[in-house]
Amino acid sequence: MTQTHVSTTINGDKVEYLCETDETLLDVLRDTLSLTGSKEGCGSGDCGACSVMLDGRLVCACLVLGVEAQDRKIETIEGMASGDELHPLQQKFLEHAALQCGICTPGFLVAAKALLDENPDPTETEVRYWLAGNLCRCTGYDKIIRAVMDAATEMRGQA
């Protein structure tokens, strides 16, 4: 299959790659660019483990074609911490033991950040519905929800 050349921006950096038409953005991130923080749990948009931001909107990278990323802006889990400082959500996930196996964690963090960027003071119900597209099989969600709420409180305090 012939490949298409794509120029895009990932976590603020200009990136170029070649991809086949049927490769997803997730395939490109993981297999071509070695950005393996985004995980593939289903490949059908049902688990949220590949959550990334595409031009400021939360999407599943498995439901975006690699060729669609031309001239877009993509943000992944790899861009969430700044330097040696974790994002408050990352820190709260650790403090609340909000991960057990950790495979869903990058997706939850990207999705939760998108929520707090849009709604800094969500209710528990809002957090639960916003994150309904992110499956976690280990935690029963309890500690994840608490971590997001706590991060929101801390981030409001900083703002």
Binding site: G48, R57, C60, L63, V64, A132, G133
Partner: peptide, 9 residues
């Protein structure tokens, strides 16, 4: 229709 992520698309 679908999740927050799906709503983005």
């Amino acid at each position: 229709i679908g999740s927050t992520q799906v709503q983005g698309r």
